[in-house]
Each structure stands twice: as structure tokens, then as C-alpha cells.
Nucleic acid binder design. Structure first.
Lengths: 143, 143
DNA sequence: ATATAAAAGTCAAAAAAGGTCAAAGGTGAT
DNA sequence: ATCACCTTTGACCTTTTTTGACTTTTATAT
């Protein structure tokens, strides 16, 4: 398949993100357009077709002098359950702390966040929220 | 991010406040303008767009000889709002990251947590939840 | 008191981005 | 060859920053 300009720009941006060592980069639309010798709206086109929310990206921008576009990749949470009870996640947290796999500040912050959330969400959706917590907690585990 | 002059002046002022060991500093508009080689009204622009009440600052000034501008940070905001929008808390997080006040893992974890939570709570209770996030995020801020 | 000079404030124009949208141009399947 | 679906391009819009001219306020010297 012959690569369209849009394909090349997409690839370029993805390489930039990979090389950045982070999950986000900042570009200038005009600069990128100049690099590829195209009109700026071509870059907008690529962003709106290839870096959508649905495909796991998010973009923000600022107009005006020294404007920019920030493209961020939404990381996926893998470990942990999709849904769990409050008791489950609190126990999990406690275990992590007891085994010194998470630092004190993280421990108490998450505990706080959980307790805060619990009283404020409908019963129905709570378990999914706690599942999300569980997964996020994992990201703080020390190795 | 390519920093605009306004960005740089904003950063400079914030550093001054931090280094002062207090919650306020006093500057001279002209002096600051000279430091950055710009017109004085540029400083006014920065003050009116980045040091607003909403963002937790307050400014007072005096004209004429021995004039000055006092910029004070409202301590109260450190605790965070009881309720806030998703955009507010995400922006706050981004600012903390941009200013290197929070490490990468904390940044992306919280971002994830917010995004995950948002789709899973009723609209009505969401703002209180986000307010709790905001406060918890503060606990991770480096000094 | 008054005048002068030294600040800071205001406001609008110009400049520097990015956004939008529709028309024109390709491409591939039928 | 036609239809449907991308891509590419460009004209025009909106937002944000930068600059400068003009105004107001305040301290100080006379």
C-alpha cells in the first residue's frame, strides 16, 4: 500500500511519542506542516482522524503566539479486576503497605480517595470505580 | 512546549514566590519588564491572565513613585475545592506536571483515575468526587 | 500648594498561532 | 465508468500573545 501524506505524518507523530519516553508530546502545527511541506490543516486532519479518543489519544491545544498541540496517549490499565468491593481494594492496599510495596503517602492518599468516593457514588457504579482504583494503585507499587 | 514570553514571566514570578518562603512577593512592573526586555503592559497581561483570583492569586498595586505590585497566593486554595469540574482537575494536574511538581507516574495515574471515574459516576455526584481527587493530588505535590 | 516625574493601568491594534469547513482531487471496489 | 470514501488544499474564523499609545495615580521637590 502506498502511504499517503496523512499516514506518514501519523507515523512520525507516533515515533515522536515513543522516543519521548513519556506518553505525551507537544508539537507546533505549523512546524510539523513545514516539515512535511503541507498546509497546517493537513496536520489537523491527521489529528482528528488518527489521534482520536476512540483510538486512545487525546489532544489539547493553545492558539496564538507560541501556540502548541499536546498529544497524549491514554495508557491502558491491565492488572487488577474490572470491578471489586470496597473491602477488596482496601485490603489490597493494606497488604501492599504491610509488605512495604507502597509508600506511606500513597497508602493514605488512596485510602482517603476510596473513602471519599464511596460515600459519593451510586451503589451501582461504585464497584467499577473501585476496580479502577485497584488498577491505578498497582501503578504505584514499588519493585 | 515552546514557552511564550508570558509563560516565562509566569514561571519566573512563581519561582520568586516559592523562593521567598512566603506566600507573597512584591515586584516593580517596570523592573520585571526590563528583566525580560519587554513592555510593562506585558507584565500586566501576565498578571491578569495567570494570577487571577480563580487561579488562587490576588494582586494589589500602587502607582507613582515607589510604585509596586504585590502578588499573593491564597493559602486557602492549597486544600483544594470541595467541588470542581473534570476540566479543572485535569488542568490542575497538567500544571503540576508542567511545573515539575509531580512525578510522571503520579501524573498519569491520577489522570487515569479521573478519566476512569468520570464515566462511572452519576453526574450529580461527580463534582464532589473530583474535588476529593483534587485534594488528594495535592498530597503528592513535591516541594 | 503645585509641578514634575515616576510608576502602574487600560485598551485597542497587530501578530502569531491553531480550528473549521467545504471544495477539489485521488483511489479502490463493483 | 461510477460510486463511495478518504485526502489534500485553501479561504476564513477564533483565540492568545505582544506592543504601544494614552491615562491615572502617587511621591517628592520646589
Amino acid at each position: 500500500m502506498k502511504k499517503s501524506l496523512a499516514d506518514k505524518i501519523e507515523e512520525y507523530i507516533k515515533v515522536l511519542i515513543n522516543n519521548s519516553g513519556e506518553e505525551q508530546i507537544i508539537i507546533q502545527r505549523i512546524e510539523l506542516a513545514e516539515t512535511f511541506g503541507c498546509v497546517p490543516s493537513q496536520v489537523s486532519y491527521v489529528l482528528s482522524t488518527r489521534f482520536t479518543n476512540k483510538s486512545g489519544y487525546e489532544t489539547e491545544s493553545r492558539r496564538g503566539g507560541k501556540g502548541f498541540v499536546r498529544i497524549s496517549k491514554q495508557e491502558d490499565l491491565d492488572a487488577g479486576p474490572a470491578r471489586c468491593s470496597q473491602k477488596d481494594v482496601e485490603q489490597y492496599l493494606q497488604v501492599l503497605k504491610d509488605e512495604d510495596l507502597i509508600d506511606d503517602i500513597s497508602f493514605s492518599s488512596f485510602m482517603l480517595l476510596i473513602k471519599n468516593s464511596v460515600s459519593k457514588t451510586s451503589e451501582d457504579e461504585l464497584q467499577e470505580l473501585l476496580g479502577a482504583f485497584y488498577k491505578t494503585i498497582n501503578l504505584f507499587v514499588k519493585y
